[in-house]
């Protein structure tokens, strides 16, 4: 594995540098995607998560997406679909 490059911060260091995770909403809304990474038994876990979300957040739209293989990053079209449709993502179940 190639090493990632480390640089010295050229700023006054008042603000953080680097990638920041997305800001979180106060509550789940819109469409939530459950992405099954296609490992054995992950589907049962995802089914149960979906059921629990329906129970708790009846207005939440839960959709299921399937990653072709867990061994590689998701293909661009899956990422784009997530980008277009989802307001939140659960990716499961890495083992």
């Amino acid at each position: 594995m190639s090493e990632s490059l480390v640089i010295l911060d050229p700023t006054d260091e008042r603000a953080p540098l680097g990638r920041r995770p997305a800001s979180r909403p106060d509550r789940l809304h819109g469409t939530l995607g459950i992405i099954d990474i296609a490992k054995p038994r992950g589907d049962i876990f995802c089914d149960e998560i979906e059921r629990l979300l329906h129970d708790r957040f009846p207005q939440l739209d839960v959709i299921r997406l399937q990653k072709p293989t867990y061994t590689k990053p998701a293909p661009g079209d899956l990422r784009d679909e997530v980008g277009e449709r989802c307001q939140a993502v659960i990716q499961a179940l890495a083992d």
């Binding site: 594995m1 190639s2 090493e3 990632s4 490059l5 480390v6 640089i7 010295l8 911060d9 050229p10 260091e13 540098l17 680097g18 990638r19």
Partner: peptide, 15 residues
């Protein structure tokens, strides 16, 4: 001896 904060550039990013 360098005091600046270190920033790790993600491996999948072009620096």
């Amino acid at each position: 001896t360098l005091g600046a904060r270190r920033v790790r550039i993600p491996i999948d990013d072009d620096p």
